[in-house]
Structure formats: structure tokens, C-alpha cells
């Protein structure tokens, strides 16, 4: 019997581990050297287009942010990359960082998609504190540093489906909301949880608009079981980097099976309550937006259909219109919470 001896690999041919682990960055950097600045501007998207196990998606080097305060850098030094499989990774191409940070709905900064990134220059994500109130044993106002201290950060790649029928795939950095909730020791009366966004007319020009038909602050809420679901994330970063203001710095919610407006940004208050809270969109248009707002291709918005979505980015001549999945494709993890509920009524 012939047994083939594996050919030896010379030590000099083995890629050092740190280079291997950063191979995308390496490709990106070599690309820049080879092709010059013009070509390089498109490379980060290519390099980030697919993300494998054990490697974190990174914002393009030229766009990385400085930490809001020194302690943030330590916090971000150790982020657990997303696993290779559902539900914490979608396996789809990521929406490029440039689009994730320039195409936003954040009406406190203006109503056009580009407004939040261009109008948030004066915004300060540090210092930051969050007021915890209501049906908990440990209410109080906590510094963000104290809030984040015990939590290890992890990357999660989720689909984000906007109620306006567009969607993205985004690598967030955060920790489970459930872990945070447990620390405040909710009482048995805590059935719902209510969130509030910062209102600062000085740094948020949208709040100063006279024609905004909204009663600031922006408010959102979850039922307790939704808040405790392992999918529900408190995000502090995106693409391995600190959240930019337009994406909800420094602390935002991510509820991937619900329309994007549920994933409230720039959270300053968390209130635990026994009754269902009023939320901004339900207050504005109860026929169009419900408290649950689960992604549902069978229930159309009165003004547009919800059975398909535009996966961004698109170009005019390669438009990827894809079918919208019930619960945004997270049915296996969340559908059981809504058993027996008429989802066309409780939309």
C-alpha cells in the first residue's frame, strides 16, 4: 500500500497569524498601494462584501471614528466577531459602510436621508447618561460607562427592514438587551419597556423644525418578552467602529424582526411599566403604524406594499427587489411570541 507523505510547507511560506487574521485589511491596504487613492475608495465595500467566521467587519480605515471618550477604546479592543451562521449572521452581502452611515432616518437631524449625516456635526455622544425608571428594584441615572462596564461586546450581522420598503444588512456591535434589563431587577409588574431618544434643539436641527408633526422626544417600546429575546440587541457600534451620530450614537436598540423605526436611537431613558406605552409613530398615525410593527409581507402599509423590499445599495440598472420574509426572516426565533395573535390586527 502506497502512503503518500504530505509535502512539507516551508516555514517561510506560512502567513504569519496576525497577517492572516487581518487579511481583508491587508488586501485593502495593498489595493490602495497598487491602485492609488481613486480606485481604493471603492475597495472597502468590496473587501467588506463577504464576511467569514472569526473575522469582524471593519469600517474603511479612512472613515474610522475617534472614540467619544478614552474608555471607549478599551471597550472596543475586544469584540467577539459574529458567528458564521443564523441567526446572528445572515450570510448575505453586507451593505457597504458608506451607505450605512449616509442613508438614514433620524428625524431629529432632518427629514432627508442625507440630513442625519450632514447635520449632526455638533452632536455630542459623550458624556452620556441613561435614566432608568419605573417597575425596577434599581432605578436611577447611570453613566454610560457604568451601563456598559459588565457587558462584553459582540458583533451581530442583522437584516434591517425599514417600513419604507428598503433594507440593508448591517454588522452591529453590542450586547443583549436582556443582560442589561436583568441588572436593574424588574419587578413582576414590569410588562413593557419604554425608550426615549435625546432631544437637544442645540445640536439637532430637525427638532427645531416648525413643521415636524411629531411630539418630541421620540418614543418606542417593547413587550417584556420581546425585550428579553436573545435577538434584541443594545448596539454601541457598527462595522467594528463607534456608532456615528446618524446611526444612533452612543446607544441604540436593534430589533431585527421589526420595522426599523422600532430600533430607537440615542437612548436617554428606559422606563419599565405595567401598561403598553404610547409610541411616536402610533401617536402620529395609528392606522399606518402599530405598536408591534413586526415585519409582515401580508399586511401592507396603507400607502405602499410590504411584500417586497429594495435591498440597498442599488444602482438604477441592477435593482435588487427581493421578497420580504415574515418577521424579516427571524420567524424561527420570534414567531412563538405571537402565537394566537391576529397579526393583521396587531400590526
Amino acid at each position: 500500500m502506497l502512503i503518500k507523505k504530505p509535502s512539507d510547507i516551508k516555514p517561510s511560506e506560512i502567513t504569519p497569524e496576525h497577517v492572516y487574521r487581518n487579511r481583508r485589511q491587508f488586501i485593502e491596504d495593498s489595493g490602495k498601494l497598487l491602485l492609488g487613492a481613486a480606485a481604493a475608495s471603492t475597495l472597502p465595500s468590496v473587501a467588506n462584501a463577504q464576511i467569514g467566521a472569526g473575522l469582524m467587519a471593519r469600517a474603511p480605515a479612512s472613515m474610522r471614528r475617534s472614540p467619544p471618550a478614552a474608555w471607549w477604546a478599551d471597550k472596543f479592543a475586544n469584540i467577539k466577531p459574529a458567528p458564521n451562521s443564523a441567526p446572528f449572521n445572515t450570510g448575505e452581502s453586507l451593505t457597504p459602510y458608506e451607505d450605512v452611515v449616509s442613508y438614514n432616518n433620524f428625524y431629529e437631524f432632518g427629514m432627508n436621508k442625507g440630513d442625519p449625516s450632514s447635520n449632526s456635526g455638533d452632536y455630542k455622544a459623550d458624556p452620556w447618561s441613561v435614566e432608568i425608571s419605573g417597575e425596577v428594584a434599581k432605578p436611577g441615572t447611570y453613566n454610560l460607562e457604568d451601563i456598559l462596564r459588565p457587558h462584553d461586546l459582540e458583533e451581530r450581522i442583522y437584516r434591517l427592514r425599514c417600513v419604507e420598503a428598503w433594507s440593508m444588512v448591517i454588522p452591529w456591535v453590542g450586547f443583549p438587551l436582556a443582560d442589561l434589563i436583568k441588572r436593574f431587577e424588574p419587578t413582576s409588574k414590569a410588562k413593557y419597556i419604554e425608550f426615549e431618544t435625546l432631544v437637544d434643539p442645540e445640536t439637532m436641527p430637525g427638532v427645531r423644525s416648525r413643521f415636524a408633526i411629531v411630539d418630541w422626544p421620540y418614543r418606542e417600546g417593547l413587550r417584556m418578552d420581546e425585550a428579553m429575546n436573545p435577538l434584541t440587541l443594545m448596539a454601541v457600534g457598527v462595522y467594528g467602529d463607534y456608532l456615528p451620530p446618524q446611526n444612533g450614537a452612543p446607544l441604540r436598540l436593534i430589533v431585527p424582526w421589526k420595522y426599523g423605526f422600532k430600533s430607537i436611537k440615542a437612548i436617554v431613558k428606559i422606563n419599565f411599566r405595567e401598561t403598553m406605552p404610547d409610541t411616536t409613530w402610533v401617536d402620529l398615525q395609528a392606522q399606518e403604524y402599530g405598536f408591534f410593527a413586526n415585519v409582515n409581507p401580508a399586511v401592507h402599509h396603507p400607502r405602499w406594499r410590504q411584500d417586497t423590499e429594495r435591498r440597498l445599495p442599488q444602482t438604477l440598472f441592477s435593482r435588487s427587489r427581493i421578497a420580504t420574509e415574515p418577521f424579516n426572516g427571524y420567524g424561527e426565533q420570534v414567531a412563538s411570541m405571537y402565537e394566537g395573535m391576529d397579526l393583521s390586527r396587531y400590526f
Partner: peptide, 15 residues
């Protein structure tokens, strides 16, 4: 802008 593919990530909406 169409020729330069410079309509942003959601060109249909923009147009």
C-alpha cells in the same frame, strides 16, 4: 448623476 451612478444607495427613490 445617472451616468456617473451618483444617485446614492436608493436611486429609484432619489429619482
Amino acid at each position: 448623476r445617472i451616468l456617473q451612478n451618483n444617485l446614492g444607495p436608493d436611486p429609484v427613490q432619489e429619482l
